[in-house]
């Protein structure tokens, strides 16, 4: 899953800070159908990782697709992946192709 996306890239974000530190916009039934990163906060786990970029569109989180998910559902999936104690990282499948 996701591997058919020609320009997609798997990025592992270690939970190195208390917050993930990204802002997202978009979701099903909006002009931006998949969540797009609009801000990366300095000092957050995403910033510390150094690979997530503003403009990345998030296709999957820990293998769960965000396709068809409305904004709040997508945000909840990301928040719960970061909160879950079973893993010390979150895997994002992202693309720069919008």
């Amino acid at each position: 899953p996701g591997l058919l996306e020609p320009t997609s890239c798997l990025i592992r974000v270690a939970k190195s800070a208390p917050t993930l530190g990204i802002a997202i916009e978009g979701g099903a039934n909006t002009r931006q159908p998949l969540p797009r990163i609009v801000t990366i906060q300095r000092g957050g786990s995403a910033h510390n990782c150094g690979k997530l970029k503003v403009g990345h569109v998030i296709l999957e989180v820990n293998g769960t697709t965000l396709r068809g998910k409305e904004h709040r559902a997508a945000a909840r999936i990301i928040a719960e992946a970061f909160k879950a104690k079973e893993k010390d990282h979150v895997d994002f499948l992202v693309t720069e192709f919008n």
């Binding site: 530190g21 802002a23 916009e25 909006t30 002009r31």
Partner: peptide
């Protein structure tokens, strides 16, 4: 393109 224009903008959530 016309369809895009009819879709609403999204809210932004900080995570």
């Amino acid at each position: 393109r016309e369809k895009r224009l009819t879709l609403p903008p999204s809210e932004i959530t900080l995570l």
